[in-house]
Design a protein around this nucleic acid. Structure first.
Length: 554
RNA sequence: CGGGACGUAGCGCAGUUUGGUAGCGCGCUUCCUUGGGGUGGAAGAGGUCGUGGGUUCAAAUCCCGUCGUUCCGACCA
């Protein structure tokens, strides 16, 4: 490839709309251009990165079959054809793959099976942002596994887990596989591959001692214990104007862990869900949502709905709520001794609340509804957990029979008995991984690509391409590199040396081989390592071995 | 969905407060110069001021609507 034929328009200044460094650099390095909010064109260099990371229209009826036409919600791009039939731009492909295999995969002898594709997905994101980090159209490498039983499924799962680990390791990224909620995809067991970066939108918790790590939504928390006290009699107190935990604690001179606050949610199916949690804890909405069957989304409840259930906004408590309302109580609340909670009357709270004694346990769901925070004890070993930010670049799911059972994808086992397939699905967000790689690998001069996904491994930069002898020398070096199996770009543009060097640094090729007068006159060849800035000088006869050696380290 | 900011040449911006001939830098074209870290100079090309309406003798500028981009938030009763 010659740079003179390469459409890679680099920019000197940064488009104002690009907020994070990967977005800025991909834009400036001529790899992507925006079409509309959350939609990008990949230019040749960007496409070369994408392509290296691995070796649309869907009928609504398939989604009706799996039950996800209704369940997928607002993120699905839906449309109708001229006959009024429903279609969508695929946000994911479980239905398609299940449909594909159910007609022809009928014997245990064909299992296990894994199928993959690299394809565009469409999701009407609530808020697309940060360039390729969260876009409405994006490329995903997805793979689906089919097995005859749960044990086989977990073998496939482990294979993909290991493969993904190798992929991220080879890309040289700092990442962590973390236990994750399976969300709209479903299934029981899931890990996210999270690339550590401040620009990431996900928070992960990990143990400071053992190897437990989970997304904040998933991180399990055991109920916190409180020092034992003698239970005092339940009592109503007047607490005028104390409709926040802070004002309540100030007024009663008590610590927040003695309070039980209420958070009222309304589901998209308009069910009221009241969550009671200690005043110093935060609600984990994913854990809440997972306990309400059929609900997809939570929002803050409307006041009239709260009042209809017997609650008083600002002064709600579990005591006196209408039967039949979802009342969720975080397990830590049950250990509060002589605490304070709302009395469902304006400006009134209960004090000396002892949930074990005072709550109607038949009317409430006690579970873990807490959001993890720094320092919480690890559910495995009890050591304090730490929090960090990351980019959810890939995820693996053990689906079980969710799709195969709903859609009738079955096979005959050794006994000739019909069984549903056990499935897994596995995805890598390709563009997001590309962005994550840049977030972790850049400096003031531009991108520093890990060799595994660099658009080219080596750039041969001809210092002055207007000089025929330099250009010819560069061409011969370029050919030698190519013949040696190295993915090489010849920068033969008739630009000044400084312009080329700046561009090489900005685009971030791992190695630059510089061909100038010193090469023409004395066979002296320079190799510059982008990552370290190190410059090596060697002779014509030895440079190729040196390049190969250096590439192994990048 | 709520809140803020922005929309003027390919890109980055000024001009809007106080209405009066459309500006700057980068990039682009041509010529000269320079030639190993974004050379220096000269001459050029390029804009329905997002869009629709209104006020006015006159609107990039004031008013109303609308579309788009972007950031923050989505929340503790």
């Amino acid at each position: 490839m010659r740079a003179s034929n390469l459409y890679a328009p680099t920019l000197r200044n940064t488009p104002a709309e690009a907020e994070i460094v990967s977005h800025q650099l991909m834009y400036r390095a001529g790899m992507i251009r925006k079409v509309a909010g959350g939609m990008y064109t990949f230019l040749p260099l960007g496409w070369r990165v994408i392509r290296k990371m691995m070796p649309i229209l869907q009928p609504g009826e398939l989604w009706q079959e799996s039950g996800r036409w209704a369940a997928y919600g607002a993120e699905m791009m839906r449309m109708k054809d001229r006959h009024g039939r429903d279609f969508c731009l695929g946000p994911t492909h479980e239905e398609m793959i299940t449909d594909l295999v159910r007609d022809e995969l009928h014997s245990y002898k064909q299992l296990p099976l894994m199928l993959y594709q690299i394809q565009d997905k469409f999701r009407d994101e609530r808020r697309p942002r940060f360039g390729l980090m969260r876009s409405r159209e994006f490329i995903m490498k997805d793979l689906y596994s089919f097995d005859k039983d749960p044990e086989g499924m977990m073998v496939s799962y482990q294979k993909m887990y290991d493969a993904y680990s190798k992929i991220y390791t080879r890309m040289g990224l700092e990442y962590r596989p973390v236990e994750a909620d399976s969300g709209a995809i479903g299934g029981g067991h899931s890990h996210e591959f999270t690339v550590l970066a401040d620009a990431g939108e996900s928070n992960i918790a990990y143990c400071s001692q053992c190897d437990y790590a989970a997304s904040d939504e998933k991180a399990e928390l055991k109920p916190e214990m409180m020092p034992a006290e003698d239970a005092l009699p339940l009592e109503k107190v007047s607490t005028p104007g104390t409709n926040t935990i802070e004002s309540l604690c100030d007024f009663l001179k008590i610590p927040a862990e003695k309070t039980i606050k209420a958070v009222a949610y309304q589901t998209d199916t308009d069910e009221l869900v009241l969550v009671f949690i200690r005043g110093d804890h935060d609600v984990n909405e994913v854990k809440v949502l997972n306990q309400v069957e059929g609900a997809l989304e939570l929002r803050m409840a409307d006041e009239d709905v709260i009042q209809a259930a017997g609650g008083c906004p600002g002064f709600m408590g579990p005591i006196g709520i209408k039967k039949g309302t979802h009342v969720f109580v975080d397990a830590s609340v049950m250990n509060v001794q002589n605490g304070v909670t709302g009395a469902n009357e304006k400006d009134v709270h209960y004090k000396n609340v002892n949930p074990q004694r005072d709550f109607d346990k038949d009317a409430i769901v006690i579970s873990d509804f807490r959001m993890v925070k720094e320092g919480d004890p690890c559910p495995h070993c009890g050591a304090p957990m730490k929090m960090t930010r990351g980019i959810e670049a890939g995820q693996v799911f053990a689906l079980g029979t969710k799709y195969s059972a709903a859609m009738g994808a079955t096979f005959l086992d050794e006994q000739g008995k019909e069984q549903p397939l056990y499935m897994g699905c596995y995805g890598i967000g390709v563009g997001r991984t590309m962005a994550a790689a840049i977030e972790q690998n850049n400096d003031k001069d531009g991108i520093v690509w890990p060799r595994a996904i660099a658009p080219f491994e080596v750039v041969v930069a001809v210092v002055n391409a207007k000089k025929d002898d330099q250009l010819a020398y560069g061409e011969s070096i370029y050919k030698e590199c190519q013949e040696a199996g190295i993915d090489t770009l010849l920068d033969d543009r008739k630009e000044r040396a400084g312009v080329k060097f700046k561009d090489c640094d900005l685009i971030g090729y791992p190695l630059r081989v510089t061909i100038g007068p010193k090469a023409v006159e004395g066979d002296t060849i320079e190799i510059k390592v982008r990552k370290t800035g190190e410059v090596l000088t060697c002779q014509r006869g030895e440079y190729l071995a040196k390049v190969k050696e250096l590439l192994k380290t990048l």
